[in-house]
């Protein structure tokens, strides 16, 4: 059973002149697999990622998460799946500026509510430690470097121990060395922890670090 499976996936933007973001996507990502989605800008990479992550709804086809069809689920049900099973990382870290790194990582855990406050703290600390951010727990996002912030964002994505991590240009704002470190991290999340990792990037060098590359042109998978 694939972690994420898309079949005949398409997304049109309605309007006087309808715009097709992606079409006819058939794709399966297995557990423990690290997949890179590449393509020129405007090729629909991000749109595809949002569809796979249930942030956006397809206008054609369907997405199965761990074997379960998500077609027709209510927004609240989709939110519940995202909360428990999917972790997002974006180009901008999107950390809440009023909260410390610890508190930022705790937010998804507390929202899920499966752990006590003390357990949530422990888990957030553990995640930050594992990303070598132990010294920065009490700092606010604007006190960190770009790479550190992105690692906090990854810790937050991992907060509820999701089966899949979806990242949209996660290294877009990072220098090459830091970008490689982040990609190493993604690879480890897939290989060592058995998570499915899907990363959108326009950087061919970085994409080479993935197990599999999917190239998108004009909303379709090529080669």
């Amino acid at each position: 059973m694939a972690a994420i499976e898309a079949s005949g996936l398409g997304r049109d933007l309605p309007g006087e002149v309808p715009v097709t973001l992606v079409r006819d996507i058939d794709l399966a990502v297995e557990a423990g697999e690290f997949v890179a989605i590449t393509g020129p800008s405007g090729s629909g990479k991000s749109s595809l990622l949002y569809l796979l992550g249930l942030l956006d709804l397809p206008t054609a086809g369907r997405v199965r998460i761990e074997g379960a069809d998500t077609t027709g689920l209510s927004p609240d049900q989709l939110a519940a799946i995202r909360l428990a099973r999917i972790g997002f990382v974006f180009q901008f870290h999107f950390l809440l500026p009023e909260f410390t790194c610890m508190a930022n990582v705790e937010i998804p855990i507390r929202r899920l509510g499966a752990l006590s406050d003390a357990q949530a703290r422990d888990r957030a600390a553990m995640l930050l430690d594992s990303l070598e951010l132990a010294d920065h727990r009490r700092k606010y996002p604007d006190q960190l470097s770009g790479g550190q912030r992105q690692r906090v964002a990854i810790a937050r994505a991992l907060a509820n121990d999701p089966a899949m991590i979806l990242a949209d240009e996660p290294t877009g704002n990072l220098d090459t060395r830091t970008a490689h470190l982040v990609f190493d991290l993604f690879r480890a999340l897939a290989r060592d922890q058995g998570r499915s990792v899907v990363v959108v990037t326009h950087d061919a060098d970085l994409a080479r670090m993935a197990d599999r590359r999917i190239h998108l042109v004009d909303g379709r998978i090529v080669d």
């Binding site: 942030l55 927004p75 939110a79 519940a80 799946i81 997002f88 974006f90 899920l112």
Partner: peptide, 9 residues
């Protein structure tokens, strides 16, 4: 980001 994390409307 809160919504993408899984906060409902």
């Amino acid at each position: 980001i809160l919504k993408s994390i899984g906060f409902r409307d």
